[in-house]
């Protein structure tokens, strides 16, 4: 117990405390002064906007994939199921250079998309692709256990009462998995906001266009602008805490409503 607390303090709490103390010295006005700089503002907008879009896309495909992997039986299911965890195990830098190579103008996907008039690499679209990649397992792995535990009786009752399958899915099943979907989306969004390694290779990192907030922290550090770096980090940390709170709140809400997580 004492070891647990001491280790937690040394490895996690004291370092985070240093950041919070430094940000506190800047004060709200100091953080705000950094945040309204147009380059910082543009980076924050790209980071949060693209993370949200990626989380939304992850929800659509993540729920579908979770459903297919849990409910249907088909050859290769186990392999695909294991593949979903890939972004947890594959280092972000490796994913980054692989995605950048795929979507570069001369890459396998990039060349085809270029013909359609869509340039992915070195634009915000590239950031979107990378964030869809890193966020997907959060949605699938949060929703999957809930689908596994769904009680078939509800669906059968709904069908017996004359509802078409689509209506059953929408009115009976969707509300039951909604809290898990929200949690998964929040996790994917939080991961996307902080993501660095898989993004920087494909993003091109053009200031005001495809520069993400974590990269700007590194830029500020290289300029020895520790206050600037701290201010951006403080904003991101504040968002992380809000997300953590939202995740905990949706989970306790679903526990109250459904009697399980």
């Amino acid at each position: 117990m004492a070891f647990t607390l001491a280790y937690l303090c040394v490895v996690v709490l004291i370092p985070l405390g240093a950041l919070i103390a430094r940000a506190a010295r800047l004060g709200v006005s100091g953080v705000f002064a950094v945040a309204i700089d147009s380059r910082v503002l543009a980076a924050l907008r790209v980071t949060f906007g693209v993370s949200l879009a990626a989380a939304a896309i992850d929800v659509v495909f993540g729920v579908l994939i979770a459903w297919v992997l849990t409910r249907y039986r088909f050859p290769g299911r186990r392999i695909f199921d294991a593949l979903v965890d890939l972004p947890f195990a594959l280092p972000t830098a490796v994913a980054g250079i692989a995605l950048a190579t795929l979507y570069a103008p001369n890459g396998v996907f990039g060349e085809q998309l270029e013909k359609l008039g869509l340039r992915v690499a070195f634009t915000p679209w590239g950031i979107l692709v990378a964030l869809i990649f890193v966020g997907l397992p959060f949605v699938v792995r949060t929703v999957q256990p809930v689908i596994e535990e769904l009680d078939a009786e509800w669906e059968e009752a709904s069908a017996t009462l004359g509802a078409y399958r689509w209506r059953t899915l929408r009115r009976v099943l969707a509300p039951q998995i909604a809290p898990a979907v929200l949690t998964g989306m929040a996790l994917a969004f939080a991961r996307g906001v902080g993501e660095y390694g898989s993004v920087i290779f494909i993003a091109g990192n053009i200031a005001y266009v495809s520069e993400i907030a974590p990269l700007l922290i590194i830029v500020k550090l290289e300029e020895y602008d520790y206050d600037g770096a701290t201010a951006i980090a403080a904003i991101m940390l504040a968002v992380s805490f809000v997300m953590l709170f939202v995740i905990n709140a949706t989970q306790s809400w679903s526990r109250r409503r459904l009697g399980h997580v």
């Binding site: 370092p15 950041l19 972000t92 902080g194 993501e195 390694g197 974590p214 980090a233 992380s240 997300m243």
Partner: peptide, 10 residues
């Protein structure tokens, strides 16, 4: 829930 870059920064 902390960005890797922020983890380095601290």
């Amino acid at each position: 829930s902390v960005s890797p870059v922020v983890s380095g920064l601290v």
